[in-house]
Every structure is written in structure tokens, then in C-alpha cells.
Design a protein around this nucleic acid. Sequence first.
RNA 1: GGAUCGGUGCCCGAGUGGCCAAAGGGAUCUGGCUGUAAACCAGACGGCUCAGCCUACGGGGGUUCGAAUCCCUCCCGGUCCA
Length: 429
Amino acid sequence: MPTTTEDLRARGLVHQVTDEALFERLDAGGLTVYAGFDPTADSLHIGHLLQLCTLRRLQLAGHRPIALAGGGTGMIGDPGGKSAERPLLSVEEIRSNVESIRGQLARFLDFDDAAGPTRALLLDNADWLSPLTVLEFLRDVGKNFTVNQMVAKESVRSRLERPDQGITYTEFSYMLLQAYDFARLNEDHGCTLQIGGSDQWGNITMGIELVHRRSGDKAYGLTSPLVTKADGTKFGKSESGNDRVWLDAGRTSPYRLYQFFLGVEDAMVGTYLRYFTYLDLDEITELDQATEQRPHERAAQRALAAAVVSLVHGESECARAQEASAALFSGRVATLDEATLLDVASEVPASTLAAARVADGVLLVDLLAETGLVASKGEARRAIEQNGAFVNDEVRPGLDALVTGDDLLHGRYVVLRRGKRSYHLVTVA
RNA sequence: GGAUCGGUGCCCGAGUGGCCAAAGGGAUCUGGCUGUAAACCAGACGGCUCAGCCUACGGGGGUUCGAAUCCCUCCCGGUCCA
């Protein structure tokens, strides 16, 4: 059984630490550790996954995690990682986003009283940032930092150096608010460790300094590496389009999430298994070997996808996603019995179509566009011309192709497909 | 408040009166090869009632036979000065 430190290191989760002495304390257990999540949308997405997984990992290792929803800082906007000033969300939006995110955090962390001293906490920094007055803030927080050091932070400097960009005072202040969060969590909950992505380094060190100045307490920071794809670009876009991959089932179905991880590149699957799963390192090593020796089996990708979907959506949803994947990629949707078809179809987008229209025959071009499988009729025509449009798993060439009663499966279903993996179920009613 | 530069398609970015639905790159999509991988090759990439038409170069107005390109005005951003 590896120590916590050994485990984190072996998984490649340690990018920077503020002090090596942290590791002894991590191995000893009993720390209170926090990570922040800004409520810029009503769901967390895959970009938050690493911090969520790491918090969970630390809880399992005997520490108490705090998930901090940025109800207050979300109103300001972190300049880090952004190339431009971002629009402010309304107070109502942020409030409702925080509420939505609460439920998702609960899937990763144990908030049950039975967890005793490691019971997770969910806090909202609006609780202490909202009542804070400007004067208090300037005297109690601002007085501890020089503009010189603030300007030197990467998040700010990158914005100052770009000739076509600037940074407002509002976003400039963000780091001070985050530093104040750490100080409050330290004072109110004994929190001494903040974790975050590598881009959070500057904000974290500011917090550590503020903690020290206010209470004399020694606090630590631990950052994880940026999660990237093999080519160095950002991880987390869905396989089709620019959509983010969300943790909310309504935005990204369990099936799509499963597919996302199933499609991970060989070169990265081992890394992701270490980041996002709780499999033993030995098991992961075996999966690495499996990828190398029998890559077509995609054993590592399957394990990764199953682990993540189970964690995010639960075992039964994961099983459904696996079944749907198997059925859809067998290429024989047309031969499925009705119950199986319906089960599979519940995982993909669906719509209904009036029976009268089918009787007359519907232009495939129109149908593709109406179902949203393509963005416009022009795109639908292109898909057809490129042999990328399928009806019940068969290519349907010709711009004048019709979908008629003959295409109905079990008398009332049509499975449309665009490309290799974008499905849509049409039910005739 | 003054001076000055700039705002082009998803992003970056060329284009300074007609040949501009707008170069080039990236991203994306589709097909091929594979393993629902990567790389690579090919094609596509504003919309439509698609050999034509409509909408589009920050917003509005104007000049012109004709404007992304010229003029006026407003909005937004950068830089410097006060």
C-alpha cells in the first residue's frame, strides 16, 4: 500500500508544492484541504474533474475536504487562463448555478456524518465575501500585499503584456479575494492546504501569505498539472464540436460521457487512468501493457470510461451507457428488438415526427436538419454528399433521398446517424 | 478631456472602391486507412425555395452605377498624455 505522497506522485498529480514538508503531513492524515469551483455555469464540467477527483482521493486518504463554491468570487471573474476580460454574470445566475453545482459535488465527496472528522464540507464564499465592506477589505486584505507583487503574477502579467488586451481593476482584485478565502477557511475551519490547477499557483501562494500574516499559521499549496491531450491542446472538448463535456446528465448524457472517454487517445489513456480513477497503480500498469500489446481491444479506454461514468452518474447509468455503446457500434441497430432499441435510444437525442409526414415520405435533408443532427440544410446536404448520412445504419445517398414508411423499425422508429457516432432516434407518432 | 491605433467569418489574420461569401493558418465536420486511437491522405466549412438568390466585414446614416474598402456619427477596445 503506497503512502498518500507516493500515490500522488506516481499518478503524476504533483505539479508544484509550496513546501516539501507538506508531504509528511499528507501521509500523516488529518489535514483540512480545499479546492474552489467558480459557478460560471449551472454544471461542473470535465475541466473540474481533476480537482474533484483529487479532493476525493485526499478524503479517502484521511483528510477533510472542503469544496468551495465561488458564489462571491464568481461575481468577479478569475483573470487567470483567460485572454480577455469576461462578462459578469448576474447575481441570480450565480446563485442558481451554485445550487446546481452543490448536488454534483456531493457525488464525489462524502458529506455523511458517518465520515466523522473527514466529513466533507461544502461552503460558499459569498457567505463571507458579500458582507465584506470595501473599507474592511482594503484595510484587512489589501494592506497585506503590494501592487508590485500582484502585477508580477502570471495571470496578470500575461494580460498586461498583450498589446491588445487589458485587465480591469475588478479582475485584478480577484487574487486578493481568493487569498481571503484561504484565510477565512484557515481561521474558521482549520484549513491548511489548498489544491488547484497549475494556473492557480499565484492565487494560492497569495493565500498562504495572507494566512501567515493574519494567524501565523503555516499553510500549503499543491497544484496539479494541466490536463492536456497528446498534442498539448486543452482536454475537455467533446468529440463533436466545441461543446464542453459536462458532468450534468441533462447536458452531456452518460452515454456521451462514456463515449468521450472511450475515444481517448492511446498516448493519454494511461495518464487519465492515473488522474481520474481509483484503480491500483498495478492494475493501471497492466492496462498500459494491454494498450501496448493489444491496442485494438481498447481495454484501458473501457476501464477509464467505466470508472468515470460510474463515479459521475452511478453504476446503473454506466451499465446502460456500455450497453448502448455496444448496440450502436455493432452497426446493426435495425436488428435490435424493440425493448433493446428503446433502451439504447434513451441514451441518444430523440424527437418525434408526425405519422402523416412519413406516409408521404420526408426528405432526408429536412429530417436531418429538423432533428438537429446537423445545423442547417446546407450541412445536411454536405453530409449526404459525403456519404455521412445513415438511415438505420445504412448509407442513404442522393440529395432527394426520402424517409418513408418502409424505413420504420417496429412500425415507428427511425434511427438516423451522421458520421460514425452521432445518433438520433425519431419516433413516429 | 486630448492624441493615436484598432474592431473582418468559430478563433487568429489578409484585404484600402468592382475579379469579395471575402486570401492564409488554426479549429471543426465528413470520407479513406485503422482499433469508436494517433498520424496521414482527400473533401467540406454563412443561409436558402441552390447553375440563382439572400444575409454578412462593430451599430446607424451618407457618397457612388458599385463599399469590408471613402465620408459622417455613435458604440466598444488598446496605447500615450493631462
